[in-house]
Design a protein around this nucleic acid. Structure first.
Lengths: 346, 346
DNA sequence: TTGTAAGCGTTATCAA
DNA sequence: TTGATAACGCTTACAA
């Protein structure tokens, strides 16, 4: 510890409510009120209390507060990955929205493992969280039961469903993927393939959307899907494209599960001497910033990740503030952004 | 809340230590000991307690624990950005290392604002954290004083310094940048430029390293630096390169502050009809995964971000476990990874 | 508007 | 090895 020698002094006693109360000649409960419900305390007293608080440098003890009120200031957030930039954007929206409120975000990382998710839910619940935000709708049965029994607002994010545990903010991956695939067909590509990595439940739904689009035009999906459970990466996108082209040389377009794969596919195509767009159509998913800046620019399906974090946080905060307005389910939708990588004339 | 109708029942009373104690016919403090220091409790009792704990589904209340022990299970982590993938990697290492211990990571996001950093430090300290991990060494004076007075282990990360508050895990940005610039010169580029965005203190040190390298060979840095305070992005990398080439057409190489800029510069160069490597050398910083997969592959300076998170967490955990071994300062160094983008013959 | 009293669930301290 | 008791710092419930 920084002050381990300690200069002979004991760690200085903490400034408590009682100290502030003594300072202004009031009771602790009054000081407590002045801090949490200022309108319940008379003007003059309130001001003297503020002054004393600043003076003494009083900071509430969240543990004592949580113990007495049976309610912590923690908003628990459970996501499968911290490195995935998709979740990073969601988190950014969350932190920006929760920052400045009296609440704190605490993150749980499931690493895509349902049993860890369940454990994290238990741990969070044991803290009596102010709210809970969980990614996805594919909780195990017992996870779901735990969430249903939570006596705090719960928001599921990233997906759409008709039966949320409590509230839900997301969009339909299936519909978005279908739109992307239809875009490839509209642009005149005749032999599209789905390239997928990791294949979590969300990826599976995107694959469904891909199939929907092919089904709709009577096209077989046979040999038009190449997926792996490996974690996604740019490199893997290239490898998948190379592998698939070796087996199915006629392929003239790929819909990639995410933008990393699409970027990697674009690099691999160039490496193979193909002209992206003309020789092979490439569409990604999420529309990370790099897609617009790439050369050539890469078509993607934009998703509103930051807004998802913001909205989820707002729904929790509203509930905590007593405003239970707004719908339980928010569909943030998606938007196809056509670019050069799916322009055959480019 | 999920169970707001509540089915008529009150929210079920929490299972406490007392419940477990009653179940096994022991006192609460014994149960408490059995959980935290099993070796202090007799074998038989210990086993009956474990059984009862599992049976009743007892989970300790972290708030009560924190209040009574004056020590929370929170390891506070203060970083300037959650979206920056550099920090995402550090976080990933942190979460992986802290996960499975009784401690919890709680994240504070300064958004690159020193005053927010100071406020976050105060808030964390008011929680009596188990440990504190902060990015950088450029805290304000009062932030630094706060950290020095903390009675928990404190680890600064991302940089090197001879006077850490407590412990430090990082590397020299200045030396790394110098190595990158020397690489450009070694490869025969004669007119390198530094491209920088955001320009936080770490970026400034990288700029210093760039200058060091030019100074060493007697080259002027005049007109060889293009920086902006805008946040970094792939697009911006391209824009900076375009802007700089318009003013200084003789430029034959760029050292970019980070990989996003380098990637953007590579795209912009290709868009301008330049052959990356032959016509313009490009070197990035951090060596994100995309750099190796890009076409052409892009030279970068690898930094050990995940390991930085792991090491920082381990240092904290070791201290908490009483093992105060290991150096106070850990230099994780860096590694130049030469690739096609700085190969003039490619 | 202010205050009193009684906890919240755990651990530190001291004793047996 | 086990336990009784008194905190820890705050808020809820009830009074005045």
């Amino acid at each position: 510890m920084p002050n381990s020698e300690n200069n002979g002094r004991k760690s200085p006693r903490r400034v408590t409510l009682a100290d502030v109360a003594r300072e202004v000649g009031a009771s602790t409960i009054t000081v407590s009120r002045a801090l949490r419900r200022p309108e319940m305390v008379s003007e003059g007293l309130r001001q003297r209390i503020s002054a004393a608080v600043a003076d003494l440098g009083y900071l509430p003890d969240p543990a004592a507060r949580a113990l007495a009120s049976r309610r912590s200031d923690v908003i628990g957030v459970i996501i499968p990955s911290v490195t995935n930039s998709v979740f990073a954007d969601v988190l950014s929206g969350l932190y920006d929205t929760v920052g400045g409120t009296p609440y704190n975000v605490q993150l749980g990382n499931t690493r895509y493992r349902p049993e860890i998710e369940e454990q994290l839910i238990r741990i969070f619940l044991s803290q009596r969280p102010a709210g809970l935000i969980v990614a996805g709708i594919d909780q195990t049965d017992s996870s779901r039961r735990l969430l249903e029994s939570a006596d705090c607002p719960v928001v599921q994010i990233m997906e759409l469903a008709s039966d949320p545990v409590d509230m839900l903010v997301g969009f339909s991956h299936r519909a978005a993927a279908r739109a992307a695939t239809e875009h490839l067909l509209d642009r005149g590509y005749t032999a599209p393939t789905f390239l997928g990595a990791r294949m979590d439940p969300r990826s599976e739904r995107r694959l469904q959307g891909f199939r929907d689009a092919l089904d709709a035009v009577g096209m077989s999906t046979e040999g038009r899907e190449l997926t792996t459970t490996e974690p996604s990466s740019v490199h893997l996108g290239g490898a998948l494209l190379d592998r698939h082209r070796a087996r199915a040389p006629g392929t003239d377009a790929v819909f990639c599960n995410n933008d990393d794969l699409a970027l990697g596919a674009a690099f691999a195509a160039q490496r193979a001497g193909l002209k992206v767009g003309r020789d092979i159509g490439i569409c990604g998913f999420n529309d990370l910033e790099v897609m617009a800046a790439a050369h050539p620019s890469i078509t993607s399906v934009r998703t509103f990740r930051r807004q998802m974090g913001e909205t989820a946080a707002l729904r929790v905060l509203d509930h905590l503030g007593g405003k239970e307005t707004g719908p339980r389910v928010v569909d943030l939708s998606y938007k196809l952004i056509p670019r050069s990588s799916t322009d055959r004339g480019a």
